[in-house]
Write a protein that binds this DNA or RNA. Sequence first.
DNA 1: GACGTCATTCTACGGTCGTTGACCGGCGAA
DNA 2: TTCGCCGGTCAACGACCGTAGAATGACGTC
Lengths: 197, 197
Amino acid sequence: MTEPSARPTRAQQRLRTEERILVAARQLFAELGYERTTIRAVASTADVDAGLVMHYFGSKDLLFARAVEVPADEVPAGTAGEVAEALLTSLGRRLTGEPVASLAVLRSMLTNADAADRYRAAGEPQLNQITEAIATPDADLRASLLSAIIHGVLAERYLLRLTHLADASPEQIIDLLRPCFQSLTTPAPAATKPQGA
Amino acid sequence: MTEPSARPTRAQQRLRTEERILVAARQLFAELGYERTTIRAVASTADVDAGLVMHYFGSKDLLFARAVEVPADEVPAGTAGEVAEALLTSLGRRLTGEPVASLAVLRSMLTNADAADRYRAAGEPQLNQITEAIATPDADLRASLLSAIIHGVLAERYLLRLTHLADASPEQIIDLLRPCFQSLTTPAPAATKPQGA
DNA sequence: GACGTCATTCTACGGTCGTTGACCGGCGAA
DNA sequence: TTCGCCGGTCAACGACCGTAGAATGACGTC
């Protein structure tokens, strides 16, 4: 019957400290990217010694790996139109409050191979599901374009903070993007004359 | 009448060396980003001493500034539809062979404040022109979304090299993107019921 | 032919980083 | 009470970085 608010056990204390370090790491990786984030700065933010970070996580790479673990957003399968709407809903959620761990990956993926791999790995299952929903030869490309659009918007809103994108409401953005997503998930439509290949 | 192929004068030699350094710097900045590119590596790639790079360019920041100077792509004004097509043409050109200097900025903008500013500055005049062409209250946001899409695609194609995007032909990509650009540049259309606000 | 200029190299300094290993002190089991 | 485990700190090492400044040697000018 250990009281929850009493002095924590040693194991609890360790977990608590680990979590503090992870929170600090996530924040700094998201703000500065992998390279410019130093273990010393993470330790200082978490109010511990740098050696302790090493002791618990082994290396900067492993710390990054632990810090950016995040459950992938499920995109349920369905018709093309349903997939488009599901993607928009998912995007709306991410535009409301993108998890800082994802931002850390997004910020670091252009300069850190590990972050790039994570980015790929995180997007792959969703890409496959989108690809299945759009049953055309160029489905892969369409899915990749959707991914590029989503991440381009997130990067400019949260990382670059381009004012028009950072200030806009999620609804406004997804409303403007809806026709894009619909055209990209709709196999055969026609804007102008398509060419066979 | 100095023969072009004869031994170069001292001034010519200097310019030639500077250019070699700039080429090496552009390549490394584009490949590794600002942080991971070292002056020593640039010097080594250009077959000179690191001190010479400092002597000519003053600092790593100034070297970066000189290396990524690139003339902005003009986007002529016109009707919304014309702007959309002009943007697609511009994108097609960049999908055929994006200049390495732009890639250096793109790669570094998430981790380097200077690169981020350059990115903003390079996009601003085009954003303004697009905004003018789309005369709606949300024109800023539409222009920003177009920018986000373009750069998202370029980043995934050239920097992350996501296979489907890296292998696709420019024509294929811009054909798929055309409806997107048209819907974003067309003020009032309707995909689903819009809501007043 | 002498001399100053300048492209270029060499050496080194100060700082920071990731990482290591010794060390300390309190908690919990025996 | 004793003692070992373990959360946590401290000091230091080796590598690498940006940068500075002296040294060198060839070129162009007088």
